[in-house]
Amino acid sequence: MKVLYFAWLKEKTGIGEEDISLPENVTDIEGLIGFLKNRGGGFEKAFSDTSLVRVALNMEHVQVSAAIKDSDEIAFFPPVTGG
């Protein structure tokens, strides 16, 4: 699974993109956030307040309850501020 981080989530985690194997017990984005947070350090900081985090699944905005599979592309970022 490809996981991407943008804006301050990229700064806090220290990476823009990574490939991970989805753990068996993780079936939705909320579960993935928990898994990433468990790594500690910058990941724990990045996801310390998930009300500030938005998620895209295969380039579409979704809620954290969205189901995921190993072939998906997930992106984490703050609320958008373009224009």
Binding site: F6, A7, H61, F77, P78, V80, T81, G82, G83
Partner: peptide, 12 residues
């Protein structure tokens, strides 16, 4: 413009 502001993934 209104939806660009809330849906397009840009960050300043």
């Amino acid at each position: 413009m209104d939806f660009l502001k809330t849906q397009a993934p840009f960050w300043k």
